[in-house]
């Protein structure tokens, strides 16, 4: 049954981010899949909150949470020994088989599924793929960039130039694609970043798998609440929780107010 209460084993604070390790019995999650968390105890918020799974190994699950509102603020207050009620793993993850030489592109907490993916690809191929990570400022995630640099093949872009390259992760992607030969892109981040990815991947004729966000209720495909716009046809939608959150970039309607419509 994909529902359980997991005990928080570890909480690490990285600037605006909290990295949780939660105990799970035998859970087989794929990079790109998510966990749907109840936020609040005695009278929980009506809707669960979705978070990408950042790691799943040795009986524990990793989640990277950035505080943006009430639910994430509640989560940030959890301590070792507290229990989290979650449905997981949900959704369709990345297809690891499609590209020989993939490039990974993350913005903000979009790092979570791509870090998981990088580790899985490393295990499969014997070397870590390159991951580009965009932050608004080097301090956003505290010591996490320094830790990750030792862990995976990471390049950072910050808007204020305080760490890595000064500029957006899209600028970084542009120079990386000009420099080296890739045959596919995995991406996750804010919708504006994903939208800006379009011209570059089209220019280099690269296929791309992208993990997108949408507000969710059920998380398992029953309510049709998490619709995003499909490309091609007017008024045609896909469910992020069931058909996604990972989609082929070209299956979604970019431009305008984006696939999520917000």
């Amino acid at each position: 049954m994909p529902r359980f209460e997991g005990e928080v084993l570890e909480v690490r604070e990285y600037g605006q981010g909290r990295l949780f390790r939660v105990a799970v019995d035998s859970l087989a999650a794929q990079p790109g899949q998510f966990a749907h968390l109840l936020c609040g105890e005695d009278s929980p918020r009506t809707l669960r909150r979705p978070f990408s799974i950042m790691d799943c190994s040795d009986g524990s699950l990793g989640l990277l949470v950035k505080v943006v509102g009430e639910g994430t603020a509640w989560l940030a207050g959890r301590r070792v020994g507290d229990r989290l009620d979650m449905l997981a793993p949900l959704g369709r993850g990345f297809n690891l088989e499609l590209y020989e030489r993939p490039l990974l592109v993350a913005g903000g907490t979009g790092l979570a599924p791509l870090h998981f993916l990088a580790k899985r690809l490393e295990a499969a191929k014997g070397h870590s793929p390159r991951l580009l990570w965009g932050l608004s400022c080097g301090e956003d995630f505290g010591a996490m960039p320094a830790w990750l640099e030792r862990d995976i093949d990471l390049s950072i872009a910050t808007c204020d130039g305080s760490a890595g390259m000064e500029g957006t992760v899209i600028d970084l992607l542009g120079s990386e694609l000009a420099r080296a030969d890739y045959d596919g892109v995995f991406a996750c981040g804010p919708e504006a970043m994903l939208d800006a990815l379009g011209p570059l991947i089209r220019k280099h004729a690269l296929p791309c798998q992208v993990s997108v966000e949408q507000r969710m209720a059920c998380g398992i495909g029953v309510c049709f609440g998490c619709a995003v716009k499909k490309s091609g046809e007017e008024q045609s939608y896909l469910r992020v929780c069931l058909e996604g959150p990972v989609f082929d970039y070209s299956d979604l309607a970019w431009g305008g107010d984006g696939p999520g419509g917000a």
């Binding site: 507000r215 008024q235 939608y237």
Partner: peptide, 19 residues
Amino acid sequence: AGNPPPRIWETPSGMLNSI
């Protein structure tokens, strides 16, 4: 096909939907 997104908004003690 249903309505254009977003289709959900959480409210105090409830939710709005426009599926």
